[in-house]
Design a protein around this nucleic acid. Structure first.
Lengths: 208, 208
DNA sequence: CCACTACCGATAGTTACACTATCGACCATG
DNA sequence: CATGGTCGATAGTGTAACTATCGGTAGTGG
């Protein structure tokens, strides 16, 4: 497959393909001469994955590079999840000092008996959100934490179950990456629909 | 409060404050003379809200403007949620044709008895994610949909309950906006922590 | 009252990102 | 052997989010 055909059947412009090569998002094609190269379905798949992570997941090109590198490395399964998570944006460090958010998060994880390493990227993410809420004087956030956590457990269990279905380690890594990134968007979409339904139940004047 | 003090106590540079004024994210300050203006706590709060939506929620400045406008308009409560949702990014339209994703989403909402309007932004969002998964040959996504939906119901119920706690309509609108935007990040963080815990339970060789 | 600093709006410049376009050289095919 | 696709390299484009500067004015301490 020549670059023009790759472009054709992936829907990505030749210029962009070259850009992704420069940025090392695409594996090297097989060279048949100094100015000719052969591409295959692997490249088509990779381009699709890139576009999904960028368009649907909202990742930057730089982040996609990191994430793909993590997905390719051959690490033990119980690490892969963490590596993928850490490569993904929003993975901010914890605030330097122990803030309100950190202590609220730690309280709830302890209550639920979660074993979470102190540098789990989600911990910083969630703590930062809570700190923002508190700063904004919206402390009602604290009242939803238990329900959010319960829902997170359900989602996480489903995530891990779907990873367990995969036949190979490489496939599992890809599932982790795709699932982590796109899963956020998927859940956000479902949440919006559920909100509409719930709002209807609570506030409907005209209930059919 | 002068602009230098506003900058001081909000942590936003004077240049950025001026920028936000140009972009109509900040309400007009009270003018005391052609080249002097008075700012108050309303402006401090607004700056904090802007920074939270941008930094934590990942919204663009243009989106923040739309979202704030929606939060300020005085619309019936059962609409506010939808307006806020629609102003928020990821709110893509449905694909023109009925795709696999759309039909999967519609099937599950019907099964659960959700009443969701056809143009709910979450519907397009979720459908697009499913289409991406399918394109990527990761059909295992379909197996997690029921659990994700169940979790979404729990979260949505908590969301609406916390909105119901608010004392005023304006406060409710703000809660909807902040809750919709920051809630996505909060849940993502909790999900990552729950994933680590769940991975530990499933794959741990060294279980303490 | 006058120097000095802070403030004003307007405009121009900067940085980062994600492409996109062009160029000269090279090769594959009819 | 002409033509058109391909190569790497480099330069340019458009957008977003600031950031810096400027001429002019206004309030304040001495």
């Amino acid at each position: 497959m020549k670059i023009s055909e790759l472009s054709e059947c992936s829907g990505v412009s030749i210029a962009s393909i070259k850009f992704y090569q420069r940025e090392e998002l695409l594996p090297e094609p097989e060279r048949t001469s100094p100015n000719q190269a052969q591409y295959d379905t692997q490249h088509v798949d990779r381009l699709r994955l890139i576009r999904a992570l960028v368009d649907v997941g909202g990742l930057s090109v730089a982040t996609v590079r990191t994430v793909l590198a993590a997905a390719e490395s051959d690490i033990p399964m119980d690490w892969a999840m963490g590596v993928a998570q850490r490569a993904i944006p929003g993975s901010v460090e914890l605030p330097a000092t122990t803030t309100r958010g950190v202590s609220e998060i730690d309280t709830i994880t302890e209550t639920l008996g979660w074993k979470v390493s102190p540098d789990n990227p989600g911990r910083g993410m969630a703590a930062r959100v809570i700190d923002s809420y508190v700063q904004l004087d919206h402390e009602e956030i604290l009242s939803v934490l238990p329900e959010y956590s319960r829902a997170a457990m359900i989602v996480a269990a489903a995530d891990l179950a779907s990873v367990g279905l995969q036949p190979s380690r490489m496939r599992m890594s890809e599932t982790v990456v795709v699932g982590t990134v796109l899963g956020d968007s998927l859940f956000a979409g479902l949440r919006r629909m559920a909100q509409e339904d719930e709002a209807r139940r609570r506030y409907a004047q005209v209930q059919s």
